[in-house]
Design a protein around this nucleic acid. Structure first.
Length: 513
RNA sequence: GGCCCGUUCGUCUAGCGGUUUAGGACAUCUCCCUUUCACGGAGAAGAUCACGGGUUCGAAUCCCGUACGGGUCACCA
C-alpha cells in the first residue's frame, strides 16, 4: 500500500443529474489524485437498470468537464461518453460477467450463500416484525437460520431449485459478534460489531451484482488505492471492508467526506431541493427526459467554473491558511485529506456568490472583454468594439458578482430609458431642472464629449449658477439612465455619445413635464 | 427505534495540551472615500469552544457520560 500508485475513482449512478455534493466528491477525488500524481477515474455504477435515467451519463461527463476535472481513465475521457483505459469497460452493466466468478468464490469459501426467499416473503416478514414491535427486521446471522437459503436447505433441495431455475439472490454471510475495525482518513478509527451488519445481497435475482459487491470487485480490479466518498456510505463501509478480507485483498484507504447540508437547517442537500431553496443545486441545467421538468445549474446561472469549484472546495475543506481564492492548480497543490473536516457543511449561497465575484475580479481582461462583447450581442443584438467594451465593462464591474449582472445592469448604454424612477422624479425634478438640462445639453455639445470634459463643464455650470451637485447630478442621471444610482454618469454619456445623450435629455424633458 | 458519525461567532472555518483577552472569511452594523449605488479602506458587534464529569501544574484541544444534530438500516446507489 505504501508505495502504490494513487488511483481514485468517482463512481456515480446514472439516475439523474449530478448534484453539487456529487461534484464536490468528484472534485476531492480529483484534487487528491493530482496532488499525488495519481489517476482519477470515472466509473458508472449502473447495476440497477430500473433506475437508469436517459442522459445522466452525458450530464455527469459534461459537468465534470465544465468544472475542469475530467477523468484520466474510464467514462468521459477526452469528453467522450465512451470509456477508455486498461480496465475497460468502466460501466458496471457491461461488466456483468466479471462479477459472477467472484460471487462463486465467496460461496465456495463459505462467505456467501444463496437465498431463495422471494421479495414478497421478505416484505411480509418485515411487516409482521414491525407490527410485533421490531421496526427493523434484518436478514442476518441470527435470522438466516429460519430462512430459505443454501445454509438451511438440504443440498438436494438447493440443487432442485437451481435446476428448476428458481430465482435466488446471493447474500454475504456476516460473522457473528466480530468487531470490524477500519481506519478512515478523515474520521480516524471506525469500529462496528458485525451483529449490526446484515447479510446484504451481493447478487440480485437478475444476476447483476449490487453496488456493494460491484464496487469492491471493481475497486480491487481497477487498483483503486483510496476510496473517497460521501459520509452516507459510512454505514456500509464495514461490509465492504469485510468483503476485502474475505477475498483476501488488500483494503483500500477509506475517506468518508462530510455531507453538504441545506442552508435552512435540516438534512443533507438533495436533488429534490432543486431551485426551491433559491439557488441551483446542479452544476448544469437539467431537464428531465420524461417529466420535462427543468432544474437550473450554476453554469447557466452565471457562475464561472473557477468560482463554483473554489466555493465547493471550501465546503468541508480548507488549507489552514487565510487564503480563500484558489485556482484549480492551487487547490491541487494545497489539498490533503487531513484538512477535510468531519462535520457536515451547511451551504451558504451568499458566500457562493462572493466566490464568483472574486473570480470576476481576477479574471483575465481579454477573456472578460470577449465574454462581455458576446453577451451584449446576444442580449441587445448590438456589436460593440473591444475598446468601447472594455470601458463599459470596467465601468459596471465593481457592483456585480456575475458577468450576466454586468450585462443586465448596463442596459441603458444600449436602450433609452422607458420610465423614470418616480420617487426620485418627485424629489429632484422641477421646472428649473428642465431649464438647467437644456443649458447643459447645449454646453456639453461644445465639448469633445469625453467623460472628463463633460464633468468639467458640468461643474463649471454648477459653480456659475451656485448649484449643488445634489441638485443637478441626479437630474442629469435621471434623464440619461432613468434612475439615480450607477457608475459615473459622465462616462456613461461619453460611451453613448452626444446624439443619444441629447435625445435622452430632450425625451426626459418632454416625458416628465 | 438499532447502529454509525458529528458538535468552535448566524454561516464556512483556523485551532491539533501552554504563544488565545479563541484568528480569518461571508452576512450584519458604523465610519471614511464618493454626485448616487457599488467597489475599496478602517472599525464594531458576534463563540462562557453543546453540556456535565474526569486526566493534567495547565484542555477548545485527551478520556467518559449526557444532550442535540446528521447519516443509515431494500433483490437502490
Amino acid at each position: 500500500m505504501k508505495n502504490k500508485r494513487v488511483r481514485v475513482r468517482f463512481a456515480p449512478s446514472p439516475t439523474g443529474p449530478l448534484h453539487m455534493g456529487g461534484v464536490r466528491t468528484a472534485l476531492y477525488n480529483y484534487l487528491f489524485a493530482k496532488k499525488n500524481n495519481g489517476d482519477f477515474l470515472l466509473r458508472i455504477e449502473d447495476t440497477d437498470q430500473s433506475r437508469y435515467v436517459e442522459g445522466s451519463e452525458k450530464y455527469i461527463v459534461d459537468s465534470l468537464r465544465w468544472c475542469g476535472i475530467s477523468p484520466d481513465e474510464g467514462v468521459g475521457v477526452n469528453n467522450s461518453i465512451t470509456d477508455s483505459g486498461p480496465h475497460s469497460p468502466y460501466r458496471q452493466s457491461k461488466r456483468k460477467d466479471i462479477y459472477r466468478p467472484y460471487v462463486e468464490k465467496l460461496i465456495r469459501s463459505g462467505h456467501a450463500y444463496m437465498a431463495f426467499d422471494t421479495p414478497e416473503e421478505l416484505s411480509e416478514i418485515r411487516d409482521k416484525s414491525k407490527k410485533a414491535g421490531n421496526p427493523n427486521w434484518q436478514y442476518n446471522s441470527i435470522t438466516r437460520a429460519s430462512m430459505k437459503n443454501s445454509l438451511t436447505l438440504s443440498a438436494e433441495d438447493v440443487n432442485n431449485k437451481l435446476l428448476s431455475k428458481t430465482p435466488y439472490v446471493v447474500r454475504v454471510k456476516m460473522p457473528h459478534g466480530v468487531e470490524i475495525k477500519f481506519h478512515d482518513e478523515v474520521r480516524g478509527w471506525v469500529s462496528v460489531n458485525s451483529v449490526n451488519v446484515d447479510d446484504k445481497v451481493l447478487m440480485k435475482g437478475d444476476g447483476l451484482p449490487t453496488y456493494h459487491l460491484a464496487n469492491v470487485v471493481d475497486d480491487h480490479l481497477m487498483e483503486i488505492s483510496h476510496v473517497i466518498r460521501g459520509e452516507e456510505w459510512l454505514p456500509s463501509a464495514p461490509l465492504h471492508v469485510i468483503l476485502y478480507d474475505y477475498f483476501q485483498w488488500e483494503r483500500p484507504i477509506f475517506a468518508h467526506l462530510p455531507l453538504l447540508l441545506r442552508p435552512d437547517g435540516n438534512g443533507k442537500l438533495s436533488k429534490r431541493d432543486g431551485d426551491k431553496l433559491g439557488f441551483p443545486v446542479f452544476p448544469l441545467n437539467w431537464s428531465h427526459p420524461e417529466t420535462k421538468e427543468t432544474a437550473s445549474g450554476y453554469k447557466e446561472f452565471g457562475f464561472y467554473p473557477e468560482g463554483f469549484v473554489n466555493m465547493l472546495a471550501f465546503l468541508g475543506w480548507n488549507p489552514g491558511t487565510n487564503q480563500e481564492i484558489f485556482s484549480l492548480e492551487e487547490l491541487v497543490s494545497s489539498f490533503n485529506l487531513q484538512k477535510v473536516s468531519k462535520a457536515g457543511a451547511r451551504f451558504d449561497y451568499d458566500k457562493a456568490r462572493w466566490f464568483n465575484q472574486q473570480q470576476l475580479r481576477i479574471r483575465d481582461e481579454s477573456l472578460l472583454i470577449d465574454e462581455f462583447v458576446n453577451s451584449i450581442k446576444l442580449k441587445y443584438g448590438i456589436s460593440i468594439q473591444n475598446e468601447w467594451a472594455k470601458k463599459a465593462l470596467y465601468l459596471f464591474m465593481d457592483r456585480a458578482e456575475f458577468m450576466n449582472q454586468i450585462v443586465t445592469d448596463c442596459y441603458y448604454l444600449f436602450e433609452d430609458p422607458v420610465d423614470y424612477d418616480s420617487k426620485m422624479v418627485e424629489k429632484k425634478w422641477s421646472l428649473n431642472a428642465q431649464l438647467w438640462l437644456k443649458d447643459l445639453a447645449h454646453i456639453f455639445s461644445k465639448t469633445s464629449y469625453s467623460s472628463d470634459e463633460i464633468e468639467a463643464s458640468f461643474k463649471n455650470y454648477l459653480n456659475s449658477n451656485s448649484l449643488k451637485f445634489s441638485e443637478l447630478g441626479p437630474v442629469l442621471r435621471l434623464a440619461i439612465a432613468g434612475k439615480t444610482q450607477g457608475p459615473s454618469i459622465f462616462t456613461v454619456m461619453e460611451l453613448i455619445g452626444k446624439d443619444i445623450s441629447e435625445i435622452r435629455i430632450n425625451n426626459a424633458i418632454t416625458t416628465l413635464n
